[in-house]
Amino acid sequence: MYEIISKTEVVPNIYELIIKAPEIAEKAKPGQFVILMIDEAGERLPFTLSDWDAKKGAITIYFLEVGLSTMTLARLDKKNISAVIGPLGKPVSAEKFGTIVLGGGCYGIGGIYPIVKALKEAGNTVITIIEARSSYLLYNKEKLRKYSDRFIVTTGDGTKGEKGKVHDVVKIMIKRKEKINRAYFIGCTFMMMNCFNETKNHDITTFVALSPIMVDGTGMCGCCRCLVDGETKFACVDGPIFEAKDIDWDILFKRNAAYSQQEAMIYQFHSCESREV
């Protein structure tokens, strides 16, 4: 059993979970993820490691309530979950590359933080851009600002910062011929693809953190396979961070939607049930 130290709805529908997992906190590196199981009947759910504290033996993840499993996790009232496994996946290499743009949306506002921090500490010029539909959906701002040379907030409705999204800001930066050596984007697949579409013709090495469906998370099942540079790769052991130019986005979108019908139906069914109680 793993103790939940805290669970907070940081903005509507996005939750921060701090879990006691000393071994993982000690070994975690930016870009890695954990697999989490609520109980014996639960799914094996992958989440980006968004912070950790080796001294306290704690790890932090952020998640969006989207389906049955995340709904259950969000409403969990017990103090323990049955499994936390990791750290899994290949970490990013935190070297000095020059000027780096890092973009986060949704759970990625939390997920981008370890990479921001590591790249700043490695001596890079770090430009962090985050996006949300509206100002009340922004979180993690102070932590990100602390390690950013420039910190840009965007909102879809313009209620805070620039009106628009991360890729709009990237577009303007490129137009202004600002020097960017590398870019990292974490968020939903659509957001990452949009961002890459801006950087791809401008000699900016761009990385994205893929979040395909997984089961074991250790390379054993092949559920999370993606087509990368024409080759089948497993996001859990070969990724989850890949160079964006190599990714077959179409396959990624379609494989991610494989269970959407079943899940939508079950989510409805369970939501109704829990309301009755």
């Binding site: 009947a41 089961v215 074991d216 396979r225 077959d248 396959i251 379609k254 494989r255 079950i266 369970h270």
Partner: peptide
């Protein structure tokens, strides 16, 4: 890489380990 193409490992893991045939009592589809 189309959907509904499984490795035997994934298919069997979903069924045997995750008890996906008992979905939604077990949460793995």
């Amino acid at each position: 890489n189309l959907s509904n193409v499984y490795s035997a490992n994934e298919y069997l893991t979903r069924i045997n380990l995750m008890k996906a045939y008992l979905y939604p009592e077990h949460y793995t589809p």
